[in-house]
């Protein structure tokens, strides 16, 4: 598994998709000048923009690397040579997943350092009204990365049941969109206006709420931007949620892939 992991990681670094996506990081250079347009909230804006930009880059990486990694191995028939080795199917998929996840984490560390520099520089232009709480910023970043690692797991799950990259890529995008909205839908149903909805929507929506991932739980951006203290139980809840959810998706993924015929 360790071997599959390191070979996957090396593959990502040599991948053109990654190199292309990383060019977007150049946008970082624009953040200070855009932020300074706001006159007052320069620091806040630079934090918002930095976190959003990182989030966007991680999304692209998760969808395109996660969605094509396994598919590419099958499509290019690398699986024949690799599955002829004494590794189980499960350790192969998990090794690949670990490689991509580690890459997502590495990217967020590197981009986090870039963000640090940008935010520092921006706050120098126009001193912030509140002190910058760096730990909140890094925690927000970490949970954003975890969110995309969960998304990578979904992309892998779709890859094991599909023969093209269509399902993994668009499946992951759909999960992302739906997962980002589940909390809102759930909350809406419990408002006055929501009570007016037909009964079956009121029944199905909560079920979906529990089945689909709730990505909103991973969002600590507001705390980072305004330096609001984090709720410790909230952080633990999200961590637990992440671990359990990830475990379930990966268990499904490896059991499906173990059954798959490689033809």
């Amino acid at each position: 598994m360790l071997q599959v992991f390191s070979v996957t990681l090396r593959g990502v670094f040599r991948d053109r998709v990654f190199q292309g996506i990383l060019i977007i990081a150049v946008v970082f250079l624009l953040i200070p000048s855009i932020s300074s347009l706001s006159m007052r909230q320069v620091t806040e804006l630079s934090i918002t923009l930095s976190l959003s930009l990182i989030s966007f880059i991680l999304l692209l990486l998760a969808v395109f690397l996660g969605g094509t990694s396994l598919w590419k191995d099958i499509e290019r028939r690398y699986t024949f040579s690799v599955m002829g080795l004494p590794v189980t199917r499960a350790s192969y998929v998990l090794g690949k997943f670990a490689g991509i996840s580690c890459f997502v984490l590495l990217t967020s560390v590197v981009l986090g350092m870039a963000a640090t520099a940008v935010i520092r520089y921006s706050s120098g232009i126009y001193p912030a009204m509140r002190p910058i709480v760096w730990s909140n910023i890094y925690l927000a970043l970490l949970f954003d990365a975890l969110k995309y690692i969960l998304l990578v797991a979904f992309a892998f799950l779709f890859s094991t049941i599909s023969t093209s990259f269509f399902l993994p890529v668009f499946g992951a995008i759909s999960v992302f969109l739906v997962g980002s909205a589940t909390q809102q839908v759930y909350d809406f149903i419990h408002t006055q206006a929501g009570q007016a909805l037909p009964w079956y929507i009121k029944k199905i929506a909560p079920a979906l709420y529990y089945v689909l991932p709730n990505f909103e739980a991973f969002d600590f951006k507001v705390n980072a931007i305004y330096g609001i203290a984090l709720s410790v139980p909230g952080v633990f809840y999200t961590t637990g949620y992440f671990l359990i959810y990830l475990f379930l998706v990966l268990a499904f993924t490896s059991s499906i892939f173990s059954r798959r015929e490689l033809q």
Binding site: R10, G11, R14, R77, Y78, F80, G84, L85, P86
Partner: peptide, 17 residues
């Protein structure tokens, strides 16, 4: 597969290595 060397038909290997 521990004691086996396998050469697939028209093999393909990780071509970035």
């Amino acid at each position: 597969r521990k004691h086996v060397g396998y050469l697939p038909e028209n093999p393909a290997f990780y071509d970035y290595l």
